[in-house]
Design a binder for these strands. Sequence first.
DNA 1: CGTTCTACGTATACCGTTCTACACGATCAG
DNA 2: CTGATCGTGTAGAACGGTATACGTAGAACG
Lengths: 342, 342
Amino acid sequence: MAPASKTSRVTIKTVAADAGVSVAAVSKVLRDAYGVSDALRARVQASMEKLNYRPHAGARAMRGRTYTLGILLPDMRNPFFADILAGVNEALDRTQYQTMIGVSRSAETIEMSLIDSMIDRQMDGLIMIGPRMPPETAEAVSSRIPTAVVGYHVPQLATLDTANNDDVAGAAQVVRHLAANGYRRITMVTLAVPTKNVVVTVQRERGYREAMKERGLAQHINIVPADQTAREVQTVVRHLLESRHRPEALFCWTDMVALHALSVAKDLGLSVPGNLAIVGYDNTIYCDLAQNSLTSVDQSGQVLGLQAARLLIERIDGRQQGDHFVVSPRLVVRGSSRPRPS
Amino acid sequence: MAPASKTSRVTIKTVAADAGVSVAAVSKVLRDAYGVSDALRARVQASMEKLNYRPHAGARAMRGRTYTLGILLPDMRNPFFADILAGVNEALDRTQYQTMIGVSRSAETIEMSLIDSMIDRQMDGLIMIGPRMPPETAEAVSSRIPTAVVGYHVPQLATLDTANNDDVAGAAQVVRHLAANGYRRITMVTLAVPTKNVVVTVQRERGYREAMKERGLAQHINIVPADQTAREVQTVVRHLLESRHRPEALFCWTDMVALHALSVAKDLGLSVPGNLAIVGYDNTIYCDLAQNSLTSVDQSGQVLGLQAARLLIERIDGRQQGDHFVVSPRLVVRGSSRPRPS
DNA sequence: CGTTCTACGTATACCGTTCTACACGATCAG
DNA sequence: CTGATCGTGTAGAACGGTATACGTAGAACG
């Protein structure tokens, strides 16, 4: 077994004895509960400090809260999620809460098993980022544990809170920008998922479609799905760029796909934006590197994460109705979409 | 899936009643403990299945294990860590273990507070990835909780296990490769940390220094430190590349720095490798993109993660002496270090 | 045939918190 | 003056497991 600290652990009992009060009193101080005098609180806090007391999360889980929030991430590699996490941490900085991250590799089965294990571990709440599950499942989850989602559009649900950017508007901005710069054959590369209105890609597809129509480019609407994997993305993009009717511009649902598109374009000897404009989404740190200089849509992951955490804690503290935070996306123009040379 | 009402959780008692055995028997089956007949085990497992029983992690934490491992990450943005995590997950796939990730933002204070909270939450063990703490602290940690580290060189310690690549050899390979391709003024960009032999950068500096001497380039040895932040890295690299005695090649301690170097070079109108060769470390996914085409050293993060997890579980199960896994790094040559035009 | 193992199960004392119920003295309303 | 209310603190029962100590039946042994 573990080289367990032979030195007996400092428990609530030790603190109580040291401060000369009851165990219940110490617990009250810990939880900031009603019915403690300032004098007693001070005495107990002094003892806790002195003994370097730390509450045992497992024991807490038995009756009360664990002060731990579960975070569900589709994958570790997308730097956009790091922004969201930064925001979550920021919101939690001054609280007792800690986070526990699980990575689902974008698979619904792993997602569900992670959720189960978060519930087993008595997480006080759950933040799901871009989950893959259908809305009914999300609702079921939120009935078992307080839940907030980021990048998942279910404004109609009262059982869970959401933090989103307006994906329809973001995609529309991209199309309008490209159209204004002289591009007409604008193709969108999206994610291959069963069509569900809740996921961000479907929202962006809608924004793309609407804006294309609005700009009189309906006949050029072309939405191409690709899997998440590097190989699949490259294959799909290569196929597109080698086709006889090569698009003039690519709108990629996320930056990572856009970066691969840049790579394929370079491989094929196409200049960007000379032969092809490329736009991404999320405005991750890689966009700003000169070798990419990628136009992208900023949806401030940090704000989304911060708001999601705030909403979740409110919900844990008892709010019953749904709350839905929406941020406006902002197009960040860089070299990859400069005006088309006529 | 039935919407489990909050009133009736399926506990070990429920299972025991359903299977017609004692609570202790169910516990034994759960823990795979000694003294259960096949018949009883089968009966209990059938009941657990039927009732969809899931053990309560908090309760387990009170006396036994939580089957949760803590993972300490310096930052979320480096895709190399994703490889390591993938390996850890692979090792844990067929076990009861789950992981809980904490991100320290490379700060020793956050590191320590995360470790505390992992211990509070009764993690069974800890995997620290590239920690910043001095070796004495690491040893202290490992005396409180079973510990394995990745990217941290303390082969002398028996209280913790390590999984590393041979950083000295990796750096030496880079220098030899560059030297063979005609580069002489090879500058190394490293991380600004208090010089401690345990961290990977210091090991890589050693390999760089030794190989430079070996190739008769001692007079060109130049090691430049830079902080982790994007701005700082860009500033340092820009300063280097604008200096009158511009280096012919840059060896960057990690890919992210190399990517920034590529960006600055492009900004300054320098061609890579025409005017400047660049080599990174970690062989992350971005190296392979055509716009980067970055030569790098592969240290198979996945293998490191897998081994670290394996070692940790062995340690939790009782091993007392230290075990140290080392993998050989492999140079992956790409465009950014092609032979120098004379 | 009695005794000692061996294999399998059971009863139950914890583990460290939270939280409900309640005790007690002081203050207040009537 | 009496009873109700308030503010503060305590006692002790959960919570859902684990692990130890022990009971018991059948087999093996001499």
